[in-house]
Amino acid sequence: MDVFMKGLSKAKEGVVAAAEKTKQGVAEAAGKTKEGVLYVGSKTKEGVVHGVATVAEKTKEQVTNVGGAVVTGVTAVAQKTVEGAGSIAAATGFVKKDQLGKNEEGAPQEGILEDMPVDPDNEAYEMPSEEGYQDYEPEA
């Protein structure tokens, strides 16, 4: 019985440690998101679009440190934060509304985080759909 109880105690310690790591990862992701939003706020009209992409990228980098179902929630929060940063930029006159959601080359930025393969159960990952990809044929 002692062996059984000791095993359960060790398992509990492992769960607590994993929860603490997840909590730490979420806190880091939130900190990076805040950094990115402050970065966007300090940019001029020309830099705002690039700044919004930076927020998304920093958040995406930190999301990889967070495991399990938390990833889905962090990704949703990050996307809403990026959308909010863009709205703030438009409201303050840093950028025109028609410039939001495009990178410096004018290509749409939507789907940055949505296409990231995420499995809350950590069982399997699927690649994003290939609808947006084109076949590449090298020139002879």
Rank of each mutant, 00 (worst) to 15 (best):
M1Y: 00
D2W: 02
V3M: 12
V3W: 02
F4W: 08
F4N: 00
M5S: 04
K6V: 03
G7E: 05
G7N: 14
L8N: 00
L8H: 00
L8T: 00
L8G: 00
K10I: 13
K10V: 07
K10T: 10
K12Y: 15
K12W: 14
E13G: 04
E13A: 06
E13S: 11
E13N: 14
V15P: 00
V16R: 09
V16A: 07
A17R: 15
A19L: 15
A19R: 03
A19F: 15
E20I: 15
E20R: 02
E20K: 05
E20T: 07
E20Y: 15
K21G: 00
K21W: 05
K21V: 09
T22F: 02
T22Y: 03
T22G: 10
K23I: 03
K23R: 07
Q24Y: 15
Q24T: 11
Q24K: 11
V26W: 11
A27V: 10
A27H: 08
E28N: 08
E28C: 03
E28H: 00
A30L: 14
A30D: 00
A30K: 05
G31V: 07
K32G: 01
K32C: 14
K32M: 03
T33V: 13
T33R: 01
T33E: 00
K34Y: 05
K34H: 09
K34S: 00
E35D: 03
V37T: 00
L38C: 10
Y39D: 10
Y39W: 12
V40Q: 00
V40N: 02
V40L: 12
G41P: 00
G41L: 05
G41C: 04
G41A: 00
G41N: 01
S42L: 05
S42Q: 07
S42W: 15
S42N: 14
K43T: 08
T44Q: 01
T44H: 03
T44I: 03
T44M: 12
K45F: 13
E46S: 05
E46C: 04
G47M: 11
G47R: 14
G47Y: 08
V48F: 11
V49H: 00
V49K: 10
H50L: 14
G51L: 09
G51R: 06
V52Q: 01
T54C: 13
T54K: 15
T54H: 08
V55Q: 00
V55P: 01
E57N: 13
E57F: 11
E57D: 06
K58I: 13
K58C: 02
T59K: 02
T59W: 15
K60F: 05
E61N: 03
E61L: 02
E61F: 06
Q62F: 13
V63H: 00
V63T: 06
T64A: 08
N65M: 05
V66P: 02
V66E: 02
G67Q: 10
G67F: 08
G67C: 07
A69S: 06
V70S: 01
V70N: 02
V70M: 07
T72V: 10
G73T: 15
V74A: 10
V74L: 12
T75G: 10
T75I: 15
T75N: 09
T75S: 04
T75M: 13
A76E: 10
V77L: 12
V77D: 04
V77E: 02
V77I: 04
A78Q: 02
A78P: 01
Q79I: 10
Q79A: 06
Q79K: 07
K80I: 10
K80S: 01
T81M: 09
T81A: 11
T81H: 02
V82K: 09
V82T: 03
V82H: 07
E83W: 03
G84E: 08
G84P: 03
G84C: 00
G84R: 05
S87C: 05
S87A: 10
I88E: 05
I88W: 05
I88F: 13
I88A: 07
A89M: 12
A89W: 11
A89P: 07
A90K: 10
A90V: 15
A91C: 07
A91L: 12
T92S: 13
T92R: 01
G93M: 08
F94A: 14
F94V: 06
F94M: 09
F94P: 08
V95G: 04
V95P: 14
K96A: 15
K96L: 14
D98E: 06
D98K: 10
D98V: 09
Q99N: 07
L100Y: 15
L100W: 08
L100K: 01
N103C: 12
N103I: 03
N103Y: 06
E104S: 04
E104W: 06
E105G: 05
E105Y: 07
E105N: 13
G106P: 12
G106L: 12
G106M: 12
G106R: 01
G106V: 12
G106F: 03
A107C: 06
A107N: 09
A107V: 05
A107T: 13
P108V: 15
P108N: 13
P108W: 03
Q109W: 15
Q109E: 11
E110L: 01
I112R: 15
I112D: 05
I112V: 05
I112Y: 05
I112Q: 12
L113D: 09
L113K: 14
L113H: 04
L113S: 13
E114Q: 00
D115A: 10
D115M: 09
D115K: 10
M116L: 02
P117E: 10
V118F: 05
V118L: 11
V118I: 10
V118W: 11
D119V: 13
D119T: 08
D119M: 03
P120Y: 13
P120C: 05
D121Y: 14
N122G: 08
N122L: 09
N122M: 05
E123D: 02
E123R: 09
A124R: 12
A124L: 06
Y125N: 11
Y125P: 15
Y125L: 12
E126Y: 14
M127W: 08
P128M: 03
P128L: 09
S129R: 07
S129K: 04
S129W: 11
E130W: 10
E130N: 08
E131I: 13
E131S: 08
E131P: 13
G132Q: 12
G132Y: 14
Y133M: 14
Q134G: 12
D135R: 03
D135V: 04
D135F: 08
D135A: 03
Y136W: 10
E137Y: 02
E137S: 11
E137T: 06
P138D: 12
P138G: 11
E139T: 03
E139D: 07
A140C: 10
